[in-house]
Amino acid sequence: MLEPDDTLRGEGAGLVSSHQHRGVVLLPQRAVWRVETRTLFIADAHLGKAATFRALGQPAPKGTTRDNLDRLDSLIDRFNPIRLVFLGDLFHARQAHAPGVAAAFLDWRRRHAVLRLTLVRGNHDRRAGDPSEQFGIELVDEPYDAEGIVARHHPLASDECEGQGATILAGHLHPCVRMSGAARDSVRLPCFVLQERQIVLPAFGAFTGGALVRGRGAKTCAIVDERLLVAD
């Protein structure tokens, strides 16, 4: 597990509203923004996960897909992107293509009809099957060259992303980090993982869990409500 000291060592550790790293901007809204190409990157939305649960007879409340799409809306309003790249696991499972979820997504798509959408297929997308053509999503496999950024679903092992080369963005891990302090206080926060050339994004989905980041040498950038906690 990552020690909080690794994250915070050095001058100027603190809470900021966004963080520039390797030519892209990390956002506390669980997204990455690249201004040159006006592209937003999102990982692991897991749309329709709650619907999948319900279809299989497990109770899960409605509203998570709505919440996901609303948060996408506010990102789009704020940055006015021309392109959105999903780094895999956009839909949770086959059952996620249920009429309710599809209608909500289609409605959202119509409101952003000119936006270019690209999905790098993730493990869940493979099982779920490709989304309907009417969504107008360009489907690609990893690694995918998104105008100079390597877009992946599964991150590379840390020794594979050393050295020179293009920035890699990936998802899949749903990374979280634990912070602790005096009086035995500790909290678990979703985070970005910064490893050499690679940035692993936190899961965007409202109904997703997280996994603690393990391993040495990884730097993280944790999300504290509307801000980011950065080390240097």
Binding site: A51, F53, R54, G57, P59, A60, P61, K62, A98, G100
Partner: peptide, 8 residues
């Protein structure tokens, strides 16, 4: 309406 597809 909270749990549309769900019914045990």
């Amino acid at each position: 309406s909270a749990y549309p597809e769900y019914r045990r």
